[in-house]
Amino acid sequence: MAIKDFPIEEYVLPGSAACPGCPATIALRIVLKALGKKTVMIVPACCTAVIESLYPHTSFNIPVMNIAFEAAAAGAAGVEAALRKLGKNDVTVLAWAGDGGTYDIGLQALSGALERETNFIYICYNNQIYSNTGIQRSGATPYAAWTTTTVGGKKEFRKEMGDIIRAHHIPYSAQTCISYPDDLYNKVKKAKEIEGPKYIEILTPCPPGWRFSMEKTVEMGRLAVETGVWALYECKNDVVTFNGKSRLILENKIKRVPIEEWMRPQGRFKHLFVPKKDVKRIKALEEHIEKIWERYRKYYI
């Protein structure tokens, strides 16, 4: 759908406690436009628990239940069961969690809810760190990135959450990014129409967490896709389709932009460029990304 045709209704109200340039609110605005008023949102500990603002106020114009860090999917399962019992079939249950709450502490509850075929949409907005607690490493943090708990740069590569999700063989899963609003909107819209568990992960570049200037949020997401650090794809009934530029990269119709282009504007990779370029680590990440694409090409062309 073209941007101008997106619903005009806003469910994220101005005046929230989000940082300026926050990608989570960009994502949430678009997601809720796609889902509409008849949505119940479950939010575990994450930036959104702050963004929603202080009691007795709220920034969200839909009913929201906060829940403990690891409990989003389980809480949502309870909401969904209650809705089914009440015969309210037209309400969408949205679990909205960060990468810490998804890749790490919430993984068990998420896996359980997917396996039990819970009829809900689980969205992970992935900013690749625990940003709400002050930029600590998560299972989604990329190799070599500085965080407050990986001071010299993370030593491990990030987890492939998409693979874990697909191992559950749910009817729909997708990766998208805030920089491609039509892709994001369409994927959420598609998920809304499908019965059963749906998983969508949105790359949300975080200005204070990644250490870039706040007007660059959208640009950083675009560069993540163009360098192949992040892929736009969807998986419907076990059939994976790559979308947009990621499809062109997959089919070798365009070349990935060198990963340095994405890294250089980010302060969290500064130690790889200053005082001296760390060729070894940049190459290691580049090769890791290439390996992922080789795997994608092997399985999904």
Partner: peptide, 29 residues
């Protein structure tokens, strides 16, 4: 309008936009 994190870009009747300065945080996106 779509990229504004705050939803403070208003859509005007002529199809152009204006800004709600009460809530704009000035991120510059």
């Amino acid at each position: 309008w779509v990229f504004c994190p705050e939803g403070v870009v208003r859509r005007e009747e002529d199809g152009t936009v204006s800004i709600d300065y009460e809530y704009c945080k000035g991120c510059g996106i």
